[in-house]
Design a protein around this nucleic acid. Structure first.
Lengths: 362, 362
DNA sequence: TTGTACGCGTTATCAA
DNA sequence: TTGATAACGCGTACAA
């Protein structure tokens, strides 16, 4: 492997010049630069990352953690899209992602060793879970961190998030307009702030309009489990006339339950999902869902983190708006907006809001 | 951040001794070691990875690539499990995974820059696709590499793989024993060696027993698409009496098609999947499937790569046996093995085989 | 516009 | 059992 010295020698310049040709940190005469580039090409030279890191104190690496311990969240298209956004934004600036293994934060685990080894400049933690020792460890080690979704606890790390509460509010308003009166929420176990938001705002909103807040929880996102729970819900003495599911996969299970029980959707039962995944467009009937933007969230997370890395004392938290996409599964009254049309109907747009720096749930 | 010098000073020893306490590269007297550890603890010292990398020439980082360009393979539980295996094995030896972004290998892409920057000691490429420039680039840069599934081309990198061909053979034998005579294969687009293996061995085996090999391909793993294709298959003038799907999700779509058409499974139609995922155990009827071991495959991949990194000239390729798990969806004749019992029935076990170093498809 | 020389924090060689 | 010191390859303050 050629080093900067060999390139300098071959180009007839000093290593300083070679360095600056590759870092771009100071202007180099066009002629000189050409000679250097030529020499580097000839020798197949690539600047050594470790040496760079040693000299600059930067590793150009971001630690990345996903909540993938159980099976439950693996089959969720949310995370691949989030990763795309992170990746796109990181690529621009030469950052790479080092996976932080599950179980990191527990004393003595290999992941904790990695955290302690200073192998990255900062971390992105996707959907930190309540009770997970990772974020406390990250804070203790003073590693710059941004989370997608909010970490639990009093002074969470800077975060970016989807406005799930707003999404639920919009959805419930739409359901009221469609004449549904007894909504139930089919939620899921797990200590994510997203679930907390959905459940809290569902309960608040339903009660504010004088109804009882019925919430049941599945222990995974599977459609089968959702179907079973929905069947039980619909067999109650006073069954709900709408079921809002915490994910599109669960909503599909609800549709299946209705089909099995001979209950017509949307006439007798309204069904809505969350995430506006490909499932929502392809189920029968098509599914009303709350659209979030994992890709944009990933980009925003990296932007925040890079702010921190560039010396910003603190960065603003960011709440991305969620859009209600109305489709057949909740459209039982004719409206001007032709529900059921190709892509669904999007509720009146709202613009991105910036939340207060260390606010709790918005 | 404390450095080795400060620890040495505080412990009253040379930096050499501190170094050896942390690297374990030579014995240190118990008393001395205790003093060093104490000092390190007091100063919150952690060895600097970049400096280590510079001195040793090793980054303790493995590049990792998943075939996640489209949505299609994201929703496959195979990859999370593969990652678990890789991760477990890597953690033991202090290696971490740096994600190689999609599109790497194309000249000028950020991923290619990362490959060229020498940021890792080796790479693991999960299911390299035909036509992807990644593996050629990796070879050109002489980065030690192992693939899960085989890379296309004449002299592929060392690989570990599931014995899909053996799995298909066992499955077809079972189907013949159950009296099925006209199997069709519901495959999927995409240049993975795994698909090639399944299609090739299906065709070989079916023809060897004098039947016509019917193969149709979906352009994704979705259950909906599989259902539509299955409906078309079953509407043919001479419909198949068995449909073998390239994944459990597709097989579930086939079950749905049969249900919609009023075709009884397994009496009139046999259905089998691939992967033995949670879907197979939970569908109605339960699904016969070919079980593979992504977790063990991941472990094996890392072991092979670490062999390469430790100077092995070449490592043996490894073919892990696939097990046929017989459940209700193909069990129309009574057998001694009580198909449909809890976990399904596993075909006579075979032991892991080691393939010839640069063999093509086994 | 370019070059000299030092420092980054560690490992490895050689010596004691 | 331990230590002194030369790499490792790059960035950058300072000088020219």
């Amino acid at each position: 492997m050629a080093s900067i010295h060999q390139v300098a020698a071959r180009a007839g310049v000093s290593i300083t010049t070679v360095s600056h040709v590759f870092s771009g940190n100071r202007p180099v005469a066009e002629q000189t630069r050409a000679r250097v580039v030529r020499a580097a090409l000839d020798l197949d030279y690539r600047p050594n990352g470790a040496a760079r890191g040693l000299a600059t104190g930067r590793t150009m690496t971001i630690g990345l953690h996903f909540p993938f311990e159980g099976d439950s969240f693996v089959l969720n298209p949310y995370f691949p899209e989030l990763l795309e956004g992170l990746s796109a934004e990181a690529a621009e600036s030469g950052y790479g992602f080092l996976l932080i293994p599950p179980g990191s934060g527990r004393p003595g685990s290999p992941g904790t060793a990695m955290l302690r080894a200073g192998r990255f400049d900062g971390v992105v933690v996707a959907d930190p879970m309540a009770g997970d020792p990772l974020m406390p460890t990250v804070r203790r080690l003073r590693i710059p961190a941004v989370t997608t979704g909010r970490a639990p606890g009093p002074r969470p790390a800077p975060w970016v998030d989807n406005d799930h509460r707003g999404g639920v509010r919009d959805l419930l308003r739409h359901l009221r307009e469609q004449g549904y009166e007894r909504p139930a929420l089919l939620s899921v176990e797990g200590g994510f702030s997203y679930i907390q938001d959905v459940e809290d705002s569902f309960a608040d909103e339903v009660r504010r309009h004088g109804a009882r807040a019925v919430i049941v929880r599945s222990d995974g996102l599977s459609g089968e489990k959702a179907r079973d729970l929905a069947i039980r819900l619909l067999g109650r003495r006073h069954p709900p006339d709408t079921i809002v599911a915490a994910s599109d996969r669960q909503a599909q299970g609800v549709l299946r339950a209705a089909e099995d029980l001979g209950i017509r959707v949307p006439a007798e039962l309204g069904v809505a999902g969350e995430g506006d995944t490909v499932l929502a467009r392809h189920s029968h009937p098509t599914l009303t869902s709350v659209r979030v933007r994992p890709r944009r969230l990933g980009e925003a997370a990296m932007q925040s983190l890079m702010g921190l890395l560039n010396g910003a004392e603190r960065v603003e938290n960011l709440l991305l708006p969620a859009e209600l996409v109305i489709r057949r599964s909740t459209s039982r009254r004719a409206t001007a907006s032709r529900p059921g049309a190709s892509g669904g109907t999007v509720s009146p747009g709202r613009t991105a809001r910036t939340a207060r720096p260390s606010s709790g749930p918005a």
